[in-house]
Design a protein around this nucleic acid. Structure first.
Length: 553
RNA sequence: AGUUCGAUGGUGUAACGGUAGCACCACAGACUCUGACUCUGUUAGUCUAGGUUCGAAUCCUAGUCGGACUACCA
């Protein structure tokens, strides 16, 4: 029985094209970022789609930077975008830039002028907007619409030569000022910008608009399937118009719905605001939905790929639960990470009947994917998690409480004998006795206890800074709420614990590594971490049935 | 209002005229030297109204609701 995965609508189109022999079955896609910001999880979907399609259908995928606006674009962004794509696990066939085609594009523009399909307009931006009409009213012709071909040719070459100031003139396609599709009301093809370009320097002072660059670049590269997001659907007639009038290779555009995620924002404009106004520490802040932020947070690349695959593509608006991404993050980290013990909120536990100087236990690193053991020192005084003790235990609580038995992970079973309290009632120390015959791996006590807690020996512990990250926003969809989206930033999205006690084996942890802090979550070593000052980021918590139980009551 | 795209459990996505399925979430239980993982089970869906058909989520008609478009950004 064929258990084939069903095709998404773009795969159907491609398979139909292959069956029909379109382009002899050749498949060439492209991923076309503008280098004016960092890539986010939405781009990851597009990357997985374009590169994935190429791979699946024996085709290729180009990386093409859509760098037609020199004032917002920077080389820094180019470098980071390339790094992000590689990290996600994809390789491009060619690395191209729309700016590589400036000369060709100029030639295309001249060709359209010669065909009487483009003209130089002296109107100001305001005048052009005013004559554009509206969704319900037609626009009106520019007074410069009927210049002669010769005059247009001269003017356009003067524009290129730098004879005019920014905004003084534009080149427009001559289509129809009454067209119901606003984009076809004589769209701008070129504008004047005396600005330095990250690649072409000062060679040009006129730059093509998106609509006159993207489709033509696709065509120059002979892209077969140009896949973009839904908001470009209105551009498709224009995309096709330029290609037809120019008589160049007929790339075709297909649109799918962009992915939205709960508890975050995705527009580059908003992300840039978060960075510039320092609500976050940068584009790669672990709270950001950027690929670099997620990488720094400790999300495995494979989790992003699985997430993209599961979510799939379609044409309807959507907002995907961030919990689904977190599911894949946990699923992968559960298999791959070594378990270690770290006490985030310390409370001292004294094993009153422990007479030895100490012992060293060998504790297994990873029960899911066996990966050896490590040495963990044990002694009379330990740090345990404050929440693992209750003087008056709640219903169903099976950790430490007077009279209760609990297993110290990898060591002994202990019985809680009491605690010491400060004047204000704060618990200062917990006392217990251990059962020597319950030694881990050699337990002859015959007891089975319900609870196991983690611990770190006080005299052997080392410290690390731990950064507890939570969702950046307090509401599911900040963009759809009233007022400014920044009002909905979660004030507790970052909680820095300056000196968490961790087991000494972690001294050699290096940046980028991930660990499971037992019972607390997955943590990765931050890029700022050094052997002298270890820094861990919380990637994601473990699922916590007890926390849920507490919340319920 | 014009153009245009869309509508399947809480979320995302299948079913292409023939038993509405999968994943996440939620809930209940089993297991557990992580209240994790794993395992078992449960709740819950075709926007509405007509029509075509033996049979409609699927085709047709009308309506409802939602998104996108009116930058010298992409």
């Amino acid at each position: 029985m064929a258990d084939e995965k069903s095709l998404n609508f773009i795969e159907e189109i491609i398979e139909n094209d292959i069956a029909a022999g379109v382009n002899d079955g050749r498949i060439l896609t492209r991923f076309p970022p503008e280098p004016n910001g960092y890539l986010h999880i939405g781009h990851a979907t597009s990357i997985c789609l374009n590169f994935g399609l190429a791979k699946k259908y024996n085709g290729k995928c180009n990386l093409r930077f859509d760098d037609t606006n020199p004032v917002t674009e920077e080389t820094e962004y180019v470098d980071n975008i390339k790094q992000d794509i590689k990290w996600l696990g994809f390789e491009w066939d060619n690395e191209f830039y729309a700016s590589d085609y400036f000369e060709k594009l100029y030639g295309f523009a001249v060709r359209l002028i010669e065909k009487g399909l483009a003209y130089v307009d002296d109107s100001t931006a305001e005048e052009i907007a005013a004559t554009k009409g509206s969704t319900v009213a037609p626009g009106s012709d520019s007074p410069f619409r009927n210049r002669s071909i010769e005059e247009n040719l001269t003017l356009f070459s003067e524009m290129r030569a730098g004879k005019y100031k920014d905004g003084e003139k534009t080149l427009r396609a001559k289509i129809d000022m009454a067209h119901p599709n606003l984009l076809l009301r004589d769209p701008l093809m070129y504008r004047i910008k005396h600005a330095h370009h990250h690649r072409t320097g000062n060679d040009w002072c006129i730059y093509p608009m998106y609509d006159f660059a993207h489709g033509q670049s696709d065509s120059i590269e002979e892209i077969t399937h140009s896949i973009c997001t839904l908001e470009f659907i209105h551009h498709r007639p224009l995309y096709n118009w330029f290609i037809e009038q120019l008589g160049i290779f007929p790339s075709r555009q297909f649109e799918f719905a962009r992915r939205n995620l709960t508890y975050t924002v995705m527009s580059k404009r908003k992300l840039l605001q978060l960075v510039n106004e320092q609500h976050v520490a940068g584009w790669d802040d672990p709270r950001m939905p950027t690929i670099s932020g997620m990488r720094r947070r400790g999300y495995p690349a494979v989790a992003l790929r699985q997430f993209s695959d599961t979510v799939g593509i379609a044409k309807r608006e959507n907002i995907v639960d961030i919990g689904l991404l977190e599911f894949y993050v946990r699923e992968n980290l559960n298999k791959s990470t070594d378990r270690v013990m770290a006490v985030l909120d310390p409370l001292k536990l004294v094993v009153t009947n422990y007479e030895l100087d100490g012992e060293v236990f060998e504790i297994e690193n990873n029960p899911e994917t066996p990966n050896g053991t490590r040495s963990v020192p044990f002694s009379r005084e330990l740090w345990i998690e404050r929440e693992d003790f209750m003087e008056v235990p709640a219903k169903k609580y099976f950790r430490l409480a007077p009279g209760n038995l609990v297993r110290l992970k990898g060591a002994y079973i202990v019985r809680c004998e009491g605690c010491k309290k400060a004047e204000d009632g704060t618990i200062e120390e917990v006392y217990c006795t251990y059962l020597p015959e319950s030694k881990s791996g050699n337990d002859t006590s015959g007891l089975s206890v319900k609870g196991t807690i983690h611990w770190v020996s006080t005299k052997d512990a080392i410290t690390a800074e731990v950064r507890l990250y939570d969702r950046l926003f307090r509401v599911e969809d900040p963009s759809s709420e009233d007022g400014d989206f920044k009002e909905y930033i979660n004030p507790d999205s970052l909680n820095v614990l300056p000196a968490v006690y961790i087991e000494p084996a972690l001294q050699r942890a290096v940046a980028g590594e991930s660990y499971q802090f037992m019972r607390k979550g997955y943590f990765c070593v931050d890029s700022e971490s050094t052997p002298g000052k270890l820094v861990f980021n919380r990637t994601v918590t473990l699922k916590d049935a007890w926390a849920k139980e507490v919340k319920r009551n």
